[in-house]
Design a binder for these strands. Structure first.
Lengths: 186, 186
DNA sequence: TTTAGTAGTTAGTAACCAGTAACTTAGGCT
DNA sequence: AGCCTAAGTTACTGGTTACTAACTACTAAA
């Protein structure tokens, strides 16, 4: 198998592993075994476990940011907002990506991880703000619903038959964010 | 030291440790050392690492739910909503509690943890819904902002001087949730 | 003074962890 | 043929992990 193929395969397997068990819970040995290679070779490719983790977390955030920017490109005003909102929620249907974001936040006890995730989140925030032209409160609401989706993915809310689960699954009307106003800066 | 005192002390130390490093990243050895006792005694008190973790996560969720219910007790309508909202955000100022919730979500790869966290989240949802009398979309928005606070706590947003950080810190006007409407059930 | 319980320890175990160094094997190019 | 590089392995390390069994020191009541 070629280097780039192998790399992609390991990244895909590691993504699932890290999404389920987090930075510390996942095992490089397990990842290697599932990929059919030696654990030593994983380290040869990615250097450290944390580097592999960060690469996956960063690409999970980037998928959302890039997707939104692409959706809004060439449009303006409400069209752009609507397209970006739709793309945002499309990207957020990827459960592994959501869980990787969550694991990124959870691993922020490590300063290196925290700095990386801060940068990722900042980029998502700025992309949302610049692309939609919404005021900060609405951007906040926009991203807040994204964070709730992270939690929903963790709880595997799709598999739950209950009132609260229905509530979490309920999709917000996209135009909503344009109407949220009245923040008070603390 | 008496049993209840020791237990409380260990719980408090373990809370910080689990909040920072998660279920798998935290070490019982470290917790024991910080408490000035043997690691073996931690297991004698709590049985397993996971049991200790779950006790902390559950109490972090319960603090929010119970606080809200208490705040709304004896009041009605907008008064109750306002009081519950205030209490909700008060409880969410506890960074360790927020991080423990986050680590609970992150550890949901383990079925036992997932079931427990589902139950906690369900209770928070129901308490919010019953107490405020809001429609599901608003409850969703209410809790979504809570999830964003989890992320903000992980990123230690208080220490960041940037536009996005200001945005995350911006406090929403409590009455807002009463005016969110227009969901579309998917 | 015995008895019962509570607070805590010592001394392990077996499994697993991330990470390293040195080696091998196979294919393409000159 | 001979060389180089990329793909991959074997074999190992030092450390940590959660968890257990068996023991001790102390206190308070009967």
């Amino acid at each position: 198998m070629s280097g780039t193929e192998r790399r992609a395969q390991v990244l895909s397997i590691a993504a699932k592993e890290f999404a389920d068990h987090g930075l510390h819970g996942a095992s490089t040995e397990t990842i290697a075994r599932e990929a059919g290679i030696t654990q030593a070779y994983v380290f040869r490719m990615f250097g450290t476990k944390k580097a592999l983790f960060l690469e996956l977390v960063e690409s999970a955030f980037a998928a959302v940011s890039d997707g939104m920017r692409e959706a809004g490109d060439g449009k303006g005003g409400l069209d752009a907002l609507s397209a970006m909102g739709a793309r945002y929620f499309d990207q957020l249907a990827d459960r592994t990506g959501l869980l990787l974001q969550l694991q990124g936040f959870a691993a922020c006890g490590d300063p290196e991880v925290r700095d990386a995730v801060r940068a990722c989140f900042a980029r998502t925030w700025d992309t949302t703000e610049d692309g939609t032209g919404l005021e900060p409160v609405s951007v906040k609401a926009f991203l807040a619903f994204g964070m709730l989706l992270n939690a929903g993915a963790a709880l595997d809310v799709e598999q739950v038959d209950a009132g609260w689960a229905d509530g979490v699954r309920t999709r917000i009307r996209p135009g909503l964010f344009a109407h949220i106003t009245g923040e008070t800066n603390r």
